[in-house]
Each structure stands twice: as structure tokens, then as C-alpha cells.
Nucleic acid binder design. Structure first.
Lengths: 336, 336
DNA sequence: CTGAAAGCGCTAACAG
DNA sequence: CTGTTAGCGCTTTCAG
């Protein structure tokens, strides 16, 4: 019942267990003959190397810790899946912890993962006020964030170019003939949202449009928030012909409110989101949006982390990936 | 830079390192005095216990391996999130591997996790033909499956009562006055699907209905499959007044095909799904369906696994959880 | 090319 | 109550 160890194999093979270790590790200082013999024996005996023991001496685990706010959010769960697959292909396993958007939990699981001796941590922060309180921990283990809430912090991160995203979106709506575009759901406290808003504002200025901004006082961008805010909005007279939402989930809520108000999308008003979550591709939603390149982000984050692990003294790295337009059916041209 | 160890703390405290170990483990054989002193010192020095070393001697890692086909599927990612949170509250971390519905990968990552010395494995199998080829591995480590594809296999599992689910669904549609109900998308090779189909058939018989079954020859139940099959179906004359889909994703595809064909749901035909994935709750979808109690399943799976870990010689356990009806807007009453 | 032995950081007897 | 010591399974010098 007890698992087969190196020693067991060595005993049967009639060699020292160092020899077995060498056979397995592909060391050159061993004859092809004995290597073959031992490898065969290992298989026969059902030997599985104990990676805990190996970690003990190698002082590394080949484990990456991942801290993610929630796996209910399709954007994050898809990203998690990508991270896992890519990390495994590079020889690492993922230890996943959900922080539930809770700062205290974020710190707690971070410390937990450090205790677990993970070689590095990838963190998708749930909010913005986490970096200072985390700095004593991030100095202990290579860490890469996936977020752009940390322009001003000395951390490694990869993110999408949020400014560029809303710029693309605004230009697209402009090209469709829209001149009064509402920017919907800007959250004050989020840097990500700040960058998105700035991209919109800068583009308005460049194109000579008057900006219209409907800020959000909520702490998350959910469908419910979009629905509530849009309900309010639609109850008044407005001259905007297009709504650019700060997040897809908001846009989905806006759709519902529009439906309730008898407003048709895109006939009466055009609607755009940001994120390209999987919901948005459903034919029943069919939302034109800005794509975050999740796979690229996952690959980049893992690459960056492995690089930090190899070279812990390196400068902080930043990678800002380009977003792209995903054209679906929620916007229409009103150009004459 | 090298992390602080027990020895370092012991040296500074002027005690043997066994004493420090005792202070940390909450052993009773130590004076309150020295414990306090040592605990304070540990904090000051920033000592973090090395759980690898601990695992080495305790011969357990407090890690659970999770094998999941994909995190793109909302049902599975939500389940994964629940599993993680509950496992962590019970003192375990989750090492997650995505198998991408690939049998070979399922075996490969299973072996990988065994090598990682996980204390147990929770597996959501991607298909049906995996159990035999896995049996040499499942005997090495406590394993719990989340699936009912293994009625006939000597394994631990938790699942939803699929038979009961379609029974509830069929009875519900019957109560709305439907007498011609199409069972849509039954996959031959899946035991889960077999049970769902049987629940439908048995209920038809009980209620005196003539069963109508549209089987699926595809290997997965996607939106695309639902769309294609329904396109075919709607192109012919039919007398069914309701469609019961074997999975929510199929139903979402059916909705789209119905829309294309100018058929209105629920006015022209009622539609039900099975799974209650998060998509289905979107107001734009609003699908009446059968809920799988993910949280209960997660809790039960972890509980069952921890129980097997504590008591490896126990009989195989099975837990079949009750599904429930989630009434939304995709069905209408046609009773007079 | 192979064996012997030290040691990774910690726990758990066993002494004192 | 505290110290000493023997490992957990493996890698890696260092000898031979």
C-alpha cells in the first residue's frame, strides 16, 4: 500500500539509490545499460517520483499560485483556464485560490501560497487598494498582476490597453455616424475604468464630439447595475444615439432596460460593451464590443512570471496588449 | 534573501528548534511563557512555515487535485469556484488541471497529480470511457467523481438525479397542458443523457403521453449543435408544443433557430433546458430549466473526499442530489 | 561509471 | 517543560 520509493527500486535493482536517481534525472554519468534496466524496473514496479521530496532539495516546487476574484465571472474563468493550460505546458501546475473580491482574503491566500512555497504568483486583483498592503508579500515571491490598476506601482503586470480600447470603440461609433455617444458606467475608484474613460474623452476631443458621461457609483459592474442605471436613463429624454458601456455586463443590463422601455437595439440606439465575455457572443445578445485578448494575456503573464522566477533581480516588467474590435449586431450606421 | 527557517528562529530565541515547532503547532507540552515569546519572535522575523517540509514528514500535503474538462463552461467553472472555497475552508488547497475533454490528458494529469502527492482527487470526467483506463490510478489515491456516468463502476461519486430532473421537467410541461413534448438532443453514448432520457420516457408512460425523441449524434451538447438540429427540425411540420432539451446550451441554440424561423418562444412553442447554467438566467434568454445544485455538489464532493482520505478502506460512496425546477419565461400554459 | 553520505525544513518519538 | 535525534524521499557533492 505504501508507495514505491527510489530505495525500493534500488534494492530490487541491486544498485544504490543514487544510481536510480541518476537514471531518472537523465544524468549523463551513467551507462545506457543500467539506465534502461532501471527505467524498465521503475515502470514495472509502478514507481512515481515524489515531487514533494524533490521540491525539498531543489528548493522549488514548479507550482504557480493563482489568485482570482471569482470563477463565476466568465472573463476570469476563461483566463484561468488559459493560464492553467499554458503553465502546465511549461512544466508548472496551478494552485488556484478565489479571493471573492475581498482584500483581507487576498492577503490571506497570498500568504498561504507563499507558505506553500509556490515559485511565483499570478494575481488578478479584485479591486484597487491592494498593492500597498501587499508589498511586504510581493517582495517574497515573484508576482505578476493581470490588471492595469497599477500604473503607479512598482509591480510586474500585463493588461490590455484600456485607453486604446475605448478609443477604438469611440472611433468605430463615430465612423457609423454617431455624434452623441454616451459613456456609460464609469467607476471612479477603478484605474482600469479611469483609463477607459480617458480613452473615450480624448477621442471625443480629437473628433470634436461633446462628451456625455454617466458615471457609476457602484463598486462592481454587474448586469443589475446596468439595468438600474439604464432604467433611470431611459426614463428621461436624451439625444445620444449610441451608448458605450464600460463593461459588457453593464451593456447586457442596458439591453434589458431598453427592452423594457420599448427601445430597440440597434434600431433606436446603438450599444457597445467592453471585455468580450462569452455571454456577448450569444446570438440573443450579439453585442459589439472590445475584445481583451485572454489567451495572449495568459501566455504573457506566465512567460513574464517564469522570467521573474529565473531572474528575480530584474526590473519590473509591464506589458500592455492591444484590444480589438468585435463587430456584432448591436450597432447600426446612421450616416446619411 | 533566504527564507527564515525554524532553526533561525530557534537560534535567536536561544532554544532548540523542536521547541519552536511545538510553539507553532499548539502542542500542550510547552509553557505559555515561551510559546508567547517564540510566537512573537516568529512574527518579528517574518517566519513562514514551509509546508513542503511539513508535508514531507506528515506524509500528506493538504492538497486536493481537481481535474475538470474546461473552465470555459460556466457550469464547470462555477463548480470549480465552489470547490475551491469550500476546500480551503476545510484546510485544503486546490491544484487544478484542465483535461480539455481529452482522455489521454485526463490520465496524464491524474498521474501528474498523484506524483504531486495530492491527498485526493476530485474529477469531473469529460466523457464516458475513462473509468477502466483510470482504475490503476484511482486505486492509488482517494478519488471522487462528479458525474453519474458511472453507475456501474466501483467509484465514489456525487451527481444530480438526472432521471428525476427530466421527470420534473416533463411533469411541469404536462401541468402546463402540453401533451406532445419533444425530447431534444439525447446523446447515445453518455450515461448522464441516458438517465435523462429515461426520466422523460418513464414520465411519458406514466402520464399516457406518446414520447417524441430527437437524438443527437454529436459528441458534445453545444449551442451550435442545438442550432443545427433545431434548424432541421423547424424546417418540417411538427405537432409538438414543447421542447425539452437535454442541456441548456442546446436550448440556447434552439432559441436562435426558432428566432430565425420566425417561431416565437413561448408563444408558438415552449422550451426547457437542463443544467441551469448562468447564461440561462440572462433576461435575454430567460430559460426555464432544471437546476443542478452546484454548491451542494461541491460541498458533498469535498466532504466525501475528505472522508475517503480519512478512511481509505471504506466502501465506495455515492450521493445523488435532487434537481429542482427553475421557472422562467420560456414555457407557457396551453391548458384550456 | 557507481556508491556513500550529507542535508533540504520540519515533526515526532525519546530522553532528560 | 525542553533538548536530542532520527528520519520523510530525494538530489548532489565527494570519493572510489
Amino acid at each position: 500500500m505504501a508507495p514505491v520509493t527510489l530505495k525500493d527500486v534500488a534494492k530490487v535493482a541491486g544498485v544504490s539509490y543514487a544510481t536510480v536517481s541518476r537514471a531518472l534525472s537523465g544524468s549523463p554519468e551513467i551507462s545506457e545499460d543500467t539506465r534502461c534496466r532501471i527505467l524498465k524496473l521503475c515502470k514495472e514496479m509502478g514507481y512515481t517520483p515524489n515531487s514533494i521530496a524533490r521540491s525539498m532539495v531543489k528548493r522549488r516546487t514548479d507550482i504557480i499560485g493563482l489568485i482570482v476574484p471569482s470563477l463565476n465571472n466568465p472573463f476570469m474563468s476563461e483566463l484561468t483556464g488559459q493560464l492553467e493550460i499554458y503553465a502546465r505546458n511549461r512544466g508548472y501546475n496551478l494552485m488556484v485560490c478565489c479571493s471573492s473580491y475581498d482584500h483581507d482574503l487576498e492577503k490571506e491566500v497570498f500568504a498561504l501560497l507563499v507558505g506553500r512555497q509556490v515559485d511565483g504568483i499570478i494575481m488578478i486583483p479584485g479591486g484597487n487598494e491592494i498593492y500597498e498592503s501587499l508589498s511586504s508579500l510581493t517582495s517574497q515571491v515573484p508576482t505578476v498582476f493581470i490588471s492595469d490598476n497599477l500604473q503607479d506601482y512598482p509591480e510586474n503586470y500585463v493588461c490590455v490597453d484600456n485607453f486604446r480600447g475605448t478609443q477604438i470603440a469611440t472611433e468605430y461609433l463615430y465612423s457609423l455616424g454617431h455624434r452623441d455617444i454616451l459613456y456609460f458606467g464609469a467607476r471612479q475608484k477603478s484605474k482600469t475604468h479611469k483609463h477607459r474613460l480617458e480613452g473615450y474623452l480624448a477621442t471625443c476631443e480629437k473628433l470634436g464630439l461633446e462628451p456625455h458621461v454617466l458615471p457609476s457609483s457602484y463598486s462592481r459592474s454587474s448586469r443589475e447595475v446596468g439595468y438600474t442605471m439604464a432604467g433611470d436613463y431611459f426614463s428621461k429624454k436624451n439625444r445620444e444615439t449610441a451608448i458605450l458601456c464600460a463593461a459588457d455586463m453593464l451593456a447586457i443590463g442596458v439591453m434589458q432596460a431598453a427592452f423594457d422601455a420599448g427601445i430597440r437595439i440597434p434600431r433606436d440606439i446603438s450599444l457597445m460593451g467592453f471585455d468580450n465575455i462569452s455571454f456577448s457572443a450569444l446570438p440573443q445578445i450579439d453585442l459589439t464590443t472590445i475584445n481583451q485578448p485572454t489567451q495572449q494575456m495568459a501566455i504573457a503573464a506566465v512567460d513574464m512570471l517564469l522570467d521573474r522566477i529565473k531572474n528575480p533581480e530584474a526590473e519590473h516588467a509591464r506589458l500592455i496588449l492591444p484590444p480589438s474590435l468585435v463587430e456584432r449586431k448591436s450597432c447600426r450606421s446612421i450616416a446619411k
